[in-house]
Design a protein around this nucleic acid. Structure first.
Lengths: 297, 297
DNA sequence: ATTGATTGATAGATTTTGTCTATTAAGGAG
DNA sequence: CTCCTTAATAGACAAAATCTATCAATCAAT
């Protein structure tokens, strides 16, 4: 039964019988049969199909919701029993927005100190992707914006507030300033994330709101690429202050706070709102609350 | 997987491999193998066994807790999909304390008017048994005391307040009185429920608190037996006023409120605290809230 | 101690279920 | 119209679940 429900979850995220089957490690006929068997159990069609996957029926959507819960609980049960046996152990899967990647360490380092047998996998994803991954139990927790898009059924722990600064070489035009305005920043050619990233959209919105037409000379979905460019001192960027400091960019470049308006966004940990949480996730949430106290401005 | 968890639930309530197997409709070796398979999955012994069942290990207790949840969710899922298909249909299993049996009708009658395809099974049980049945998902809801024993993880809806009166024939000694005291009642030979019932314990406590030694001439766990005796007018009893009225006893006998102290206890509907509830149970809770408004003193 | 009854584990046979490969049917795109 | 993608179907095979029968351990009563 539970494996059938997992088939259904895979189908929901892959929207394709073949790929869903592959994701489950079975062949396509097996997955088809599994779904069909669920449908026979319920006496209701769950999936609309022509010659291809066409989404779920209303009943299918409901079953899907239950499947998420039941499969999640089954995993949590397993994890909890293992924790009773060997202490906290296993793999914690995280997803973080690129601008938060550098601060994941502030969670994982103390976590690992407490629980040396826990391993981590961290994905760099957009904020909307993170919510999708959480929804489908593909990650245990995410680090993303808490105050923008609707979060859905999650537990959220605010971690820190993102404020923005302009990063320029010491010999650049604005380098001497104590603070700059978004209008001034809009005149500088910048390295930024790609437009599918919320951070980029936030910054671009702030720039455009001044009436200017910003020059995004270079964009990437990879922070390391932006970092390596900016570090040469030949490129400028706008980054969250904390991120620039963590990366050591403030040693090499001038980091000038941007005002008018003074924009800020809250970044935090989000985990599926399930009661009880898996032991690994519960411990991560606890760690996040501790870290939040340390980071508090 | 889910059927294995059901094996475990059966074992928890039967405390006996053979009977648990029978309850699940499988043979004893099958159930044994199922439990063993769970144990191999988790890599941990779940059940302590010598040559007989000796309870669960700590890990077993945890798995049991999850099993209740997961099995409950699986049933709720099924019920919900069926409700989408055929409207609300199925069987609602209730358990009520004997003194509340006569008022179950005030819930089931309007429920059935709204949802003609729902069937009912009602068990007469003690208040502690009811909590056990709820815990193990053997009933969907119970009707019992809300203000005495700890209820556990349940949703409770108060329905009415139980107040006590003395039922005697019109020619009996106290029959002319507007009210009587517990001390006076303690002198009258009574028909009451058996001592495993909370109602009996409540009444006996009130009688003994006066310093008297009450005469319980006849006791039974069956309300219908008490009813048939009391109706002859040759026996007296103490009952909740509302119950006596519902049974029509107040037409035949004098029902005299008992004071000093004026004792009262709240009776209500209890359902497992799960989110979301099964559609049938959710509707019952809604009905209970409506009925409570009507019954409100 | 010995016996009988109870309880759960084990062995082996049988049936059921699940999964795979290969193929077919149905749409959609060019 | 033809090609390509996608999911369903058929048939073979393997894995599993479950059953019957039996055994071993324990406990109680003699």
């Amino acid at each position: 039964m539970i494996d059938r429900l997992q088939f259904l979850l895979a189908l929901a995220r892959e929207k394709h019988f073949g790929r869903a089957a592959e994701a489950c490690g079975v062949t396509q006929p097996t997955l088809s049969a599994g779904v069909k068997q669920l449908e026979e159990n319920f006496g209701v069609l769950l999936v609309n199909r022509g010659s291809r996957f066409q989404g779920f029926t209303p009943e299918g959507e409901r079953v899907l919701e239950w499947a998420r819960r039941i499969v999640g609980d089954a995993r949590a049960m397993h994890e909890e029993v293992q924790a009773l046996r060997h202490g906290l152990a296993g793999r914690l899967r995280l997803a973080a927005i690129p601008t938060a990647l550098a601060m994941v360490e502030t969670l994982t380092t103390p976590y690992r100190a407490r629980h040396p047998n826990v391993q981590f996998t961290t994905y760099s994803r957009t904020s909307t992707e993170i919510l999708g991954l959480l929804e489908n139990l593909e990650v245990d927790a995410g680090i993303t914006y808490l105050d923008n898009e609707p979060l859905g059924r999650v537990t959220a722990v605010p971690l820190y507030t993102e404020r923005y600064c302009l990063l320029v070489a010491a010999d650049a035009a604005l380098a001497g300033r104590e603070r700059v305005t978004w209008k001034e920043v809009a005149q500088v050619p910048l390295c930024l994330l790609t437009p599918d990233m919320q951070n980029r959209r936030i910054i671009e919105r702030l720039l455009r709101d001044t009436g200017a037409n910003p020059h995004i000379t270079l964009e990437s979905d990879s922070m390391i690429l932006l970092y390596s460019h900016v570090r040469t001192r030949r490129w400028a960027s706008v980054m969250p202050s904390r991120l620039a400091a963590t990366l050591g960019l403030t040693d090499v470049l001038r980091a000038i706070p941007i005002t008018e308006p003074e924009a800020s966004h809250t970044i935090g940990l989000v985990a599926p709102a399930r009661e009880p949480m898996t032991p690994l996730t519960a411990e991560l949430v606890a760690e996040a609350r501790r870290v939040a106290r340390v980071l508090a401005d």
